[in-house]
């Protein structure tokens, strides 16, 4: 069986495809990170129960 040449066109096509998928994944991560910063920065829920009473998490009258 003939071995594949070091730079067969199959390799070029695959590396191009892998690069495109890689770039898409990086862009997706950046987008989700930016979204997280915006959502948290614009006053969405940032506090949660952490075993200590916090007036801001307790409804008034309780």
């Amino acid at each position: 069986m003939m071995p594949l040449a070091r730079e067969h066109e199959l390799h070029a096509a695959r590396s191009g495809r892998n690069l495109a998928v890689g770039i898409c994944l990086v862009l997706f991560v950046v987008l989700v990170f930016a979204l997280t910063l915006v959502k948290l920065g614009s006053g969405h829920q940032m506090e949660a129960f952490d075993h200590a009473v916090r007036p801001s998490l307790v409804e008034s009258g309780q």
Binding site: E9, L10, A13, R14, G16, R17, L19, A20
Partner: peptide, 8 residues
């Protein structure tokens, strides 16, 4: 044939 970026 192998799939290229353009095909995707």
């Amino acid at each position: 044939a192998d799939l290229g970026v353009n095909d995707l």
